[in-house]
Amino acid sequence: MEDKIKNYRTAPFDARFPNTNQTRNCYQNYLDFHRCSKALSAKDQDTAPCDWYRRVYKSLCPISWVQKWDDQMEAGSFAGRI
């Protein structure tokens, strides 16, 4: 897994999102990263496996969206289920 993360270039094909529009893919990977981090942190485990989701959403999502979602997370007003 660590080799895959180190050799990461861009988001690989995801069969759940076969269309050209990758908006849903971006959002889902953002949610998956935070769910993974929350679940592993609750068990006092290393959150390194979650880095894959972070790299994927950072390569797919516009920076302004990520900043907006991060601000909403801090304010407690994020609409997604984490």
Rank of each mutant, 00 (worst) to 15 (best):
C50M: 10
G76C: 02
W65M: 13
Y57D: 11
N25H: 02
S41Y: 12
F33A: 06
L60Y: 04
C26M: 07
R81H: 02
M73E: 04
Y53E: 12
N29K: 13
L40W: 02
W52Y: 13
N19P: 06
K58E: 15
S64W: 04
D71W: 01
R24N: 12
A79S: 00
L31N: 03
Q28M: 11
M73F: 10
L60M: 13
S64F: 12
A42F: 03
V56D: 08
D70R: 00
W69A: 03
C36R: 14
S77I: 09
A39H: 08
V66C: 11
Y30Q: 03
A42W: 10
W69Q: 01
G76L: 02
A15S: 13
A42H: 07
I82H: 04
W52G: 07
P49F: 14
A39Y: 01
R55F: 03
Y27D: 11
S64L: 06
C36M: 13
D46V: 13
Y27Q: 10
T23A: 11
D32R: 03
L60Q: 06
P62W: 09
N29E: 07
E74W: 00
T23H: 08
D32M: 08
T20C: 12
L60K: 07
K38S: 15
C50W: 07
Y53F: 15
V66S: 08
A42P: 07
P18Q: 05
F17E: 09
K68M: 07
D46R: 14
D46H: 12
S64M: 04
N29H: 12
W69E: 03
D46S: 15
Q72I: 01
R55L: 14
Y30W: 11
C36Q: 11
R24S: 14
R81T: 05
M73Y: 05
S64Y: 07
W52K: 15
W52C: 08
D32W: 06
F33D: 04
A79T: 00
A15P: 04
Q67L: 11
Q67D: 14
A15N: 05
L31G: 01
A48E: 09
P49G: 14
R55Y: 06
D51N: 15
A75Y: 07
N21I: 05
R55C: 05
N25Y: 01
P62K: 13
D70F: 00
Q67S: 09
R35E: 09
S77V: 05
A79M: 01
G76N: 04
W65A: 08
Q22R: 14
R55G: 07
A79V: 01
